[in-house]
Structures are given as C-alpha cells and as structure tokens.
Amino acid sequence: MRDVAVVGFAQRQEAEIADESEVELMVPLMDQVKKSVGLSQQDIGFTCSGSSDFLAGQAFSFVMTIDGTGPVPPISESHVEMDGAWALYEAWVKLQIGDIDTAFVYSYGRPSRGSLRDVLATQMDPYYVAPLWPDAFAIEALRARLLLDSGKVDERQLAEIASRSRAHAAGNPNAVRSSPKSVADILAEPFAVDPLRPSDLPASADGGAVMILAAGDRARELCDRPVWIRGIDHRIDAHSLGVRDLTRVESAEIAAHHAGVADDKIDFAELHAPFTTSEFLLAEALGLDGDTVVNPSGGALAAHTMMASGLIRVGEAATRIQAGDGDRAAAHASSGPCMQQNLVCVLEGD
C-alpha cells in the first residue's frame, strides 16, 4: 500500500446557508485549501466530489459546482452520489495506482433547502417502505427502542453521549449545537420521536468540506506534518430493515477490521454518528475502549451536513493529529437508513 496523507483541509458548517449557492459556498474553501499547500488545480492529479441530487432538488446538481475547482484547462475528475468520504476513498484508490501524487476531494450539502425528512424517505425500499414516507428520525427511533429493550444501553447513557457532544462542540467554531446541557436536563427533554429526545438527534447544518491528499514524499513537501491514511475500508449491510440486526452495525465492524483499527491504540475517534444511538453502536463496532476520546469535535450531533459529514470526520481527525492532539485516530463515515453503509479509516501522524 502506498503511503497517502491528508495535507490540507477546510470546512464550513452553519445552521442555514441560504444566500449562497453550492458553488458560491464551496469556491472560497477550495481556493483556501489549494493556497494552503501551494497547489493550483492544474497541479492536482485527480479530483473527486460527493453530493446528492435529491438533496439539492436538481438533476446533475454537481455540474454547477465543478466550476469552483477551475476546470479550465480540463481536469481528471469523477463524482460519487455518496458522502464525500467515499470521494476521498476513490481519490485514495487513484493514488494507490501510482500515476499521480496529489488528489483533491470535496463534498457539500444544503439540507435546509428541502424537507430532509421527506428527502430521506425516498432512500428507503421503493416498493414496501418509501410509499409509507417514514422519516429518518422515526427509523432511528425504532432502532433506539430495540437497543433500550435489549438492555445494551439505557437512556442515561444516551443522554451522556449527547451532553458530552455539546461539551466537546463548545470548542468547535463549525458546531451549530454547542450549548452545554447536563445529563439531567437532557433526560428532562420531552421526546422528539419517542424514545429519542431532541438532544439525541443530529443538528442539521448546511456546508461543505475540501481536502487535499498527497502520496509519499510529495506529502512531506507540501505539509510539515502530513497525516497518513494507514488503513481505509468500507462495507455495506443489507437494506431491508426487517432482515438486519439493528442492535449492531456489522458493516462498520468489517470495515474497522480491514482498516486496522484494533492494531494499536486509538487516541481519539471521529464517528459520523447522527444520533446518540449511532455513536453508542459505532464505538462498539469499532471496538473503542474508554481510553479513546470519541468525537472531540462534537460530531454529527453538533453539526450534521448531509453528504459532507463523513468527509468532515476525516478532516476533523486529521486536523487534530496535525495539531498534535494525538498520534492515531479513527475516522468514520456512514450512509443510508440506520447507517447501512460504513467507511472507516485510520489516521496517524509521522
């Protein structure tokens, strides 16, 4: 495996970005990251992005955003209809081939523009489930009750996750939910979707993220402290809720295994957990113990930008390693109902 590192990252998340189009939102971030490593678009070997037409309410919505990269002259480029973490994966694969040394990755979403609950209902089985229009919160609430009934977790543990996310998010300028709240106060919240409380739910945000990857010596040239991707893997579970064991996240377990999470101590983990229940399950799936700090940024509970949230987890983890907050981290991205699809990567400093 060729050594590939994160050498540049920028993000922006706000509760609502109404007055800027997707490309207007992204172009300053793109420009900023390229400048930070001294590269122009024409220096970059491969570009890949992730976004969703359904979220944007427009077919071929990514075509509007490509202009932000400055694709004149033409660039080598691709797009996944997935969270940006999978665009990162595609770029990492291209770097593994060995023909190129740098890659540019971005993703974005503005869920405030549409009814996200309706949008996500169209992600469900089109014959049996989508016609009933269940929303994503209800689907996760079904999982939450299964977990609570099974005794694997109790409401206090979930409230502790929510409270800790808020505390961590206090230091994160991109968080949209960072006001401190005690476990007791969270437990006193009326249910949003019984058995989930408002603090159990993601804080939806608009925004985007941009990342530059580089291989080997090129990474060292571009950056004082490159953050190396030591392992990366992604897996998908069955789609039908009725056939899945919703009290675990099997695809995340497999991905974590292949990414090598358990090979050494994980100092901290950035998990793309939109719900407190998802964070609980992911910590278990990745085999994290009490020594690992989970979601130092506050995670998706503090700011959840659909289509970028996974890439932002990787960026958050890389930024912290770069700052010397730890040596080895796990970053995770998910997609689909009840985290059907999961990506795990292990990041290390030099």
Binding site: V23, G114, D118, P126, A130
Partner: peptide
C-alpha cells in the same frame, strides 16, 4: 406495476450572483 407518487418541497434560493 405500482404507482408510487413522490412530492418533495424545496425552498429554492438562487445564490448571490444570480440573486
């Protein structure tokens, strides 16, 4: 075959340049 109508409402904002 089965009819599965879809209706999703968005708030379209054109962005600064277009605005």
């Amino acid at each position: 075959s089965v009819r599965t109508p879809i209706r999703i409402e968005y708030n379209y904002t054109p962005g600064r340049g277009l605005s």
